[in-house]
Every structure is written in structure tokens, then in C-alpha cells.
Design a binder for these strands. Structure first.
Lengths: 215, 215
DNA sequence: CAACGTCTTGACGGCACGTCAATAGCGTGT
DNA sequence: ACACGCTATTGACGTGCCGTCAAGACGTTG
């Protein structure tokens, strides 16, 4: 593929070479899991010697993290340039766009989100958390709730949790087929709306009543 | 620990030895991730020679799966012997028990559930899915909805998705502290109730309207 | 007490990863 | 055009981990 048998050695710009290796790694990690892919495989696929991986990425682990990071990029268009209408409408559009994006990039998204990454890996977890954080921001923005201050952290936490449900439900749709697209649309929009409009205030009230109020 | 330096070899019943190794493995996997724990470590901790692991479990992988399987056992008492009252009450009690169980076995549960899963491993995924299935049954039972037939699969899928949100929210509580116990209680009970009472019928209706009716 | 079953182990072979000094592209200056 | 130097690239080495297998030891049985 990338390795040309006629050329013994091609020397190229670090960035370029780095990108080649990364692409090969991404392709391979798409197919198998972390352990099943060896650095030799990656090197072979990229048409380079194995030590180059260490040279450019430090080690197999770092390379993998780079791949995960790249795959976790949250699709931006989901909450971009929404019409200035009601919260309901904006969220419904966002959900719809989400379904579009996921359906279009089905394979990539599934391998990216997977059941999840390498497993109990602090670094991978960090990447996921950062992605969740960004996603939560987008939701708040779509819901016209960016200036919420009371119980902001709690709200964000609940939205992050909702993100887990969204991913799980999307998997149900794409993999198991237990939910249809229309099911998902209704499910996800209704859930996020209820979360923001009803549950959130309710939680706020419950906290005030049952616990010590914040300082 | 388990290894007594005075005894050169102790020979004991397969079951017993198997259990010893499993316990040692569980303890170690609690601390680190799959890759960071070597079979040598486990063997040492169990006070046996490394090949015994292969003898009893086949290999490191199978041993690990056994540990996961054991840790994933869904706490049964959560939905056991609920009073025969309203759905609301029964679910509220279940949620409360869930919080109790999780809080009590905090460390074990966290390592069991991990960041969410183990990582693109078909076998591990299978175990998780089976656990989800059982959990969904429990929820249906607690909600007095065991005899639902219309859109049963869709409902179960939504409940499984809710399970992901529940786990994520529990992590928010135990690890990040962004949600308090009262927050969680209100959040989780309100969400599952809304899901069953409102979202589910709505999804059912949406599917009927927007899609071809089931055969 | 000797013989047997089987639980247990030491030793071997193979594979994957990281390191390092040595090699060879490719631009540069004369 | 040619030699030179920088650095991208690699072959070879060392280490660690896992699975296999035949040999050894423990406890039991006749």
C-alpha cells in the first residue's frame, strides 16, 4: 500500500511522516482493539520501520491516545448556527443533526465511541471527559441556557450523564436495531427537554430542601 | 500474604485453588488496568506458580473475563420484595436502594463499571450487555410493567440507555462530586418515571405516525 | 508401605515493545 | 558538480510477558 517496494528509503518532512503513521494506526485500530494491533503491524502498514513510532509518538500508548483524541472530536455542526427560535425547536434540530452525523459516519463513530476505549485507562478517560465537557457546553448553548448560574455545575453534570444515555441509545439504534430513527428522535428530544425544563428545577428544589444550602 | 514461606508446596482442591487465584486477580485488577497487571503478579499474590493460571483459567484473558463477570453481578436487593404500592413509590425505593448499594460498595462498583467499559472487547461487551438485560428486567418489574407487549423491545432499549445515564450520574456523584446524593435521587427517579410514563408512550406514537407500522 | 492419580512447577520458545548507535536521504555551500 | 552536514530512518539488542509441556511432588488408596 503505502510501502513502495522499489524505494528503499524515502525521507520526508516530520509532519508528513507523522500523519502517515497516524493514518495507518487509525485504520488498524478501527478494525481491532488496542491489544490486537501490534506496533509492527502499524509500522508495516505505514511502510516504515517500527522504531519510527517511538520516535514520533513516544510509544504505542501515546500513539493510541492520539488516535482516540482524533476520533473523539465532537462533530461541531450539530449545534452550529441554530435559528433563534424556542428551546424546543433548537434542541429538536440539534438532535436531528446528531442523528444525521452519526448515521453518516456510522462506522467511525462506533469505533470511536465503542463500548469505550482501552479500559480503566486514566488518560483515555481524561480525553472522554474533555469531550463530554465540550458537548455539555454545546447543549447549554443550544438550549439558550448559557447564562445559568444557580446549580450550574449540577446541571452540567446531569447533561453529561444525559450524554451517556444518548450514546447508549445511538448504539441501540446503529448496532442492535432495537430503536428506529424516529424512536430515537422522540426519545432524545423529549428526554433532554424534560431534563432541562422539569428535572433540573426539581433537583434544585430537592437539594435546597433536603440538604444544606450552598455557601 | 497467601504464600507461606515455610510450606514448599500445598496441594489443595481445584475449586479452592481456583478461588484463591480468582480472589488475588480481582484484588489486583481492582488497582490497575488489564495491561498493567501481569500473570506473574497474580501468581505471586496467590502464592502459586504462573502456569497454574493457565491450568485453571486457560489464560490471562479468560481469568480477566471471569473477574469482570463476577464484578458485574447486578446487586439483586435493589428491586427485591418491594411493597405493593404505586409505581412512583416502588421506583423511588429502588433508586434509593441503588444509591445505598453503590455508596456502600463504592470502590468495587467503580472498578467494576470502570470508565464505562473495558474497550472494544467482544467478550467483555457481551458480559456488559447481559448485565444490562438483567437490569432492564428488574426495572420493568419494579415499575409493574412486566406484561407490556406493545413496543416492548423499544421500551427495553430505552431502559438500557437509561442504565447508561444512571451509571454516568453515579460516577458524577462518587468520583467528581458534582452531584449530591439528594440531587441524584431526584434526578434518577424523575427521569425514569418520565421515561416510563411520558416518553415511552410518546415514542410509541411517534413511531406509529412517522414510520411504517410493525408487521 | 508402596503405588497411583493429579495437582503443581521449572524450563523452554515465541512475541511485542523500547532503546541506541549506526546508516543513508536530502538540502546546502563552495 | 561535488563534498559536507543535518537529521530522518533503521537494524540489532535487551527486557518482559505469555502459553506450553513434560517432569516432579503431594496426598490418598489398596
Amino acid at each position: 500500500m503505502s510501502a513502495d517496494s522499489t524505494v528503499k528509503r524515502r525521507r520526508l518532512e516530520p509532519e508528513e511522516r507523522r500523519a502517515e503513521i497516524l493514518a495507518a494506526a487509525r485504520k488498524l485500530f478501527d478494525a481491532g482493539n488496542y491489544a490486537s494491533v501490534s506496533t509492527s503491524d502499524i509500522a508495516k502498514a505505514a511502510g516504515v520501520a517500527r522504531p519510527l513510532i517511538n520516535h514520533y509518538f513516544g510509544g504505542k500508548r501515546e500513539l493510541y491516545l492520539e488516535v482516540v483524541r482524533q476520533m473523539m472530536v465532537v462533530p461541531a455542526p450539530v449545534t452550529e448556527s441554530l435559528p433563534k427560535t424556542t428551546r424546543e425547536h433548537r434542541l429538536a434540530i440539534s438532535v436531528d443533526r446528531w442523528l444525521d452525523v452519526v448515521e453518516r459516519n456510522k462506522r467511525t463513530w462506533l469505533t470511536a465511541i465503542g463500548p469505550e476505549a482501552i479500559g480503566r485507562d486514566p488518560d483515555v478517560e481524561r480525553i472522554m471527559l474533555e469531550a463530554d465537557e465540550i458537548a455539555a457546553d454545546h447543549v447549554l448553548e443550544a438550549a439558550l441556557m448559557t447564562d445559568i448560574v444557580e446549580g450550574r455545575e449540577e446541571l452540567r453534570a446531569m447533561i453529561r450523564s444525559y450524554g451517556s444515555m444518548l450514546r447508549a441509545a445511538s448504539r441501540e439504534w446503529l448496532i442492535r436495531g432495537t430503536l428506529g430513527r424516529e424512536d430515537l428522535r422522540a426519545f432524545l428530544t423529549d428526554s433532554i427537554l424534560h431534563l432541562l425544563n422539569v428535572t433540573y428545577p426539581k433537583v434544585l428544589a430537592a437539594t435546597r430542601d433536603g440538604r444544606t444550602p450552598p455557601e
